[in-house]
Design a protein around this nucleic acid. Structure first.
Lengths: 153, 153
DNA sequence: CTTGACTCTGTAGTCGACTACAGAGTCTAT
DNA sequence: ATAGACTCTGTAGTCGACTACAGAGTCAAG
């Protein structure tokens, strides 16, 4: 009835090493161990892993997911807390989107200035813009893109 | 006339350790060394560091910046190569934007379903969506957000 | 009864862009 | 002459989310 770690890996698509890693991070735990020390999981863990996968796809970090799981495991906790986490994450993501948009606009601006395929880098307006000292080109480059940390490799 | 590493750090806003790190990465190099082994830089290096800072703000990695600098240092190189790098980077950034937008939309959807501050997590629709097994909620969650690597901590 | 697949712990490596020492030598101002 | 600031090399640590061993023990099939 119970699943060994390999079975869980196969059925969840999460690697064995990753499952042990999640355990160290406090995200999952085996129901029990065999005499030999083998981990035994309830089928239940598959739902939990799906929860983790989904939350990751929504941009939550493992620490944040641990928090969500703790709230979920404890049904007496406040739902407002979950909403707050969700809302913070939305703002976080929107900041990152804005930073990336500024980057893209800066690059698109430079690309538009570039005449095309012929010629050497000596007359390349893109390199010139990165190098030059005037203010018109400076304006095309975003000041400092902060909060760009992506949480998935 | 030449600058020691500390002066370069002060005038560029780039930390001393980071300058040595950039040297190991092949981005900058001192013009010479003193008898004691102290690095000596031309003022020139400040422009190069500004180039690096700007390219970073546009989302280029240090490896990519090294490439841009190599092209820039060698004016006989093809300008098309620079345009290609720029174009690739734009596409890269747009992929990341789209991934983040999908995340944001998924989260916003969940947030909208949440009634508000009262209640416990037992009846929290956000947690339920992460946990549940039906397809309507599944649809609200982006499949797999790839290419989310941000290159700045 | 042995082969091969599986599991265990514990530690270390990966990626990117730094940051932080330790321990030694050097330079400047008083 | 000495304090304090500066610099050198080399190595290791940080963050997040894994991934990859090494070396030992366990289990199921033929």
């Amino acid at each position: 009835m119970d699943l060994t770690i390999g079975k869980v890996a196969k059925r969840s698509g999460v690697a064995v090493e990753t499952l042990r890693f999640y355990e160290r991070r406090g995200l999952i735990e085996p129901r029990d161990r065999t005499d030999a020390g083998y981990r035994l999981y309830r089928e239940d863990v598959l739902r939990r892993l799906r929860f983790i996968r989904r939350a990751q796809a929504l941009g939550f970090s493992l620490d944040e997911i641990a928090e969500l799981l703790a709230l979920s495991d404890n049904p007496a906790e406040s739902a407002a807390e979950v909403k707050r986490l969700t809302h913070d994450k939305i703002e976080d993501i929107e900041t990152r989107i804005r930073d990336l948009e500024r980057m893209r606009d800066g690059l698109a601006e430079l690309e538009a200035r570039c005449p095309g395929h012929r010629g050497t880098t000596a007359e390349c307006p893109i390199l010139a813009a990165l190098d030059r000292d005037d203010e018109a080109t400076e304006a095309a480059i975003p000041a400092r893109a902060s909060a760009l940390r992506g949480n998935r490799p």
